[in-house]
Amino acid sequence: MNVREFLKNCPVEIWSQHFAVVKAKYVPKDFVAVFSDREEITVVVDAQHLNDDWIIESEQGWRMLSFRVTLQFELVGFLAAVAQALADAQISIFALSAYSTDHLLVKDADLPEAIRCLESLGCAVAESD
């Protein structure tokens, strides 16, 4: 499957919340995503749920964009194409991949330009309900 064809009309949801990416002491109750390895625990959390008790470091001011399609494991270059378009616009991303869906965090200030970039790839970007 051609990634450019796949991106045409690909639904992208903009979450209404503002998020923080946190290096955490432990996994808090109200997390959105978590990644744990031998070195650290990284948590994505709605910024309104931040609590100093479990935070080591945090980076706030992120917005989440979710690709609302099932991504086939055979689809090669999906994230690379999206990341390259955003990189060309000087937009930093924090990428999250679930089993069948990818999500990107972009800084709030970069959201309008990120939307423009995704729409130029053919994506159908919309605010969440």
Results as ranks from 00 to 15, higher is better:
residue 2 N to I: 01
residue 6 F to Y: 15
residue 7 L to Q: 05
residue 9 N to E: 15
residue 10 C to M: 14
residue 10 C to Q: 06
residue 11 P to D: 09
residue 11 P to C: 12
residue 12 V to W: 05
residue 12 V to S: 01
residue 13 E to K: 09
residue 15 W to M: 10
residue 16 S to T: 14
residue 17 Q to C: 02
residue 18 H to T: 15
residue 19 F to W: 04
residue 19 F to P: 00
residue 22 V to E: 02
residue 26 Y to P: 00
residue 29 K to V: 06
residue 29 K to R: 12
residue 31 F to V: 05
residue 32 V to I: 08
residue 34 V to N: 03
residue 38 R to Q: 14
residue 39 E to A: 09
residue 40 E to C: 11
residue 40 E to M: 13
residue 40 E to W: 15
residue 42 T to D: 10
residue 43 V to H: 02
residue 44 V to N: 03
residue 44 V to R: 04
residue 46 D to C: 03
residue 48 Q to D: 12
residue 49 H to S: 06
residue 50 L to R: 02
residue 52 D to T: 02
residue 52 D to W: 04
residue 53 D to F: 02
residue 55 I to Q: 04
residue 55 I to Y: 04
residue 57 E to C: 08
residue 58 S to F: 09
residue 59 E to P: 00
residue 62 W to R: 01
residue 62 W to A: 00
residue 65 L to S: 03
residue 65 L to T: 02
residue 67 F to P: 03
residue 67 F to A: 04
residue 68 R to W: 10
residue 69 V to A: 11
residue 69 V to E: 15
residue 70 T to R: 07
residue 71 L to A: 15
residue 72 Q to G: 07
residue 73 F to P: 00
residue 74 E to P: 00
residue 78 F to Q: 07
residue 78 F to I: 12
residue 80 A to W: 14
residue 80 A to T: 10
residue 82 V to L: 11
residue 82 V to N: 06
residue 84 Q to P: 00
residue 85 A to E: 15
residue 85 A to W: 08
residue 87 A to V: 08
residue 91 I to F: 08
residue 95 A to F: 07
residue 95 A to N: 06
residue 95 A to C: 11
residue 98 A to N: 09
residue 99 Y to P: 01
residue 100 S to D: 13
residue 100 S to Y: 15
residue 103 H to I: 07
residue 104 L to D: 02
residue 104 L to F: 11
residue 106 V to Q: 08
residue 108 D to K: 10
residue 108 D to H: 12
residue 109 A to G: 00
residue 109 A to T: 05
residue 110 D to C: 09
residue 111 L to M: 11
residue 113 E to Q: 13
residue 115 I to T: 09
residue 116 R to A: 14
residue 117 C to L: 03
residue 118 L to P: 05
residue 118 L to S: 09
residue 118 L to C: 12
residue 118 L to Y: 10
residue 119 E to D: 08
residue 120 S to F: 09
residue 123 C to S: 07
residue 123 C to L: 05
residue 127 E to M: 13
residue 129 D to N: 14
